[in-house]
Design a protein around this nucleic acid. Structure first.
Lengths: 203, 203
DNA sequence: ACCTGAACACCGTTCAAGT
DNA sequence: ACCTGAACACCGTTCAAGT
């Protein structure tokens, strides 16, 4: 009689992450997770704790993943931009975990993994002290918040609500109207904002 | 025998908004709302529909509130900045409704109420067409996303998590370290980002 | 037209009980 | 040490029934 392998906290977290990635946070349920794993709900409580604890652990994992973002580019400003882009991409890949972090007010933690790297690059540009802190945070907020917005916006497009704004046919700038009719290009918006932030450093 | 006034959908929405503002979205419950109103849960369903419908209606209200933001300033760039600040302030005042809008993927709708006003000001600066659309959206995303981030961040500070980053004592820029130790000034970060976005328009 | 209570299918969580 | 089922207090929602 071979008794089954005992389940570890890690396998539970793996399964939870997969389930959330597949069906979204709202559909996630302790009981469904237990079903998926073939155990009783209550054994999840023994291994990882309740729902809150489980989500916190998932956020910690997301944080750990962000520790080694690539740092490449010829100039310091380029390296800052590359770091920002890399973090944004990583966050968007983990959409649902990011949503959980946001829900739980832990998004500011996502600033931390790249803080020091940004500080080093800014120092190379001669930016230090309180000014460096401000720019650093402006970049980090831009990255994280644009990732947070991006995917709720993309999901929102499916609801396809009509624009209550009246763009009359005699509005002078019909090119603008046409551009606003098509869905927002969040990559472009992100890039525009990032370059604006870095412009001062590039002069 | 005077029978009580019949309850209207509007009074229900009012009470819901107040309850959410007071106790947060998570604590909000159909049954608690019914208790507050002194009616059976089921009569809410008759008047406004289920939870989803109720939240959608609240978001619609938030949207309507944003229709008449003040437009003041001497230059077009100043007016854009003032509009952006006014919308951000309005959103932060309605934190919890903004959170609901975000949760329900309807944040992009918040762009609409100021779209046309921004377009007019940009046209005065000679910015039109696809370029205007991009800048317009960059400003809107900056406003909405910074409001979304702001209040989850402020709430998050209460959890008071320690910074896992190692700022060694011999780190060359101790002013920076000190600045990063104190909580983020989101107003300053917003202003920095906004001015960066508008800098190109100001030259 | 308006409001009700009962009932259903679901939650997260606790806890005593098993091996 | 690990896992279970029963039970509790709570959800949102439906619906037949009342006035």
């Amino acid at each position: 009689m071979t008794r089954p392998e005992p389940i570890t906290a890690d396998t539970i977290l793996d399964a939870a992450a997969r389930l959330i990635e597949a069906t979204g946070v709202d559909a996630f349920t302790m009981r469904k997770l237990a079903d998926q794993l073939g155990v009783a709900v209550t054994s999840i409580y023994w291994h990882v704790g309740g729902r809150d604890k489980l989500f916190d652990d998932l956020v910690d994992r997301l944080l750990a993943e962000m520790a080694n973002l690539p740092l490449e580019g010829d100039s310091a400003a380029d390296r800052i931009a590359a770091l920002a882009r890399a973090q944004r991409r990583a966050l968007i890949e983990r959409q649902h975990l990011l949503a959980i972090a946001h829900e739980r007010d832990r998004t500011p933690l996502l600033f931390l993994p790249i803080q020091q790297k940004l500080a080093i690059e800014l120092a190379q540009l001669g930016v230090t002290g309180a000014e460096a802190a401000l720019i650093l945070r402006a970049v980090e907020v831009h990255v994280v918040s644009s990732a947070v917005m991006q995917f709720t916006a993309v999901r929102g497009e499916k609801h396809d609500e009509e624009d209550p704004t009246l763009w009359t046919d005699d509005w002078p700038d019909q090119d603008l109207v046409a551009a606003l009719q098509s869905p927002t290009d969040y990559d472009a918006v992100f890039e525009y904002g990032l370059e604006s932030l870095l412009a001062r450093l590039r002069s």
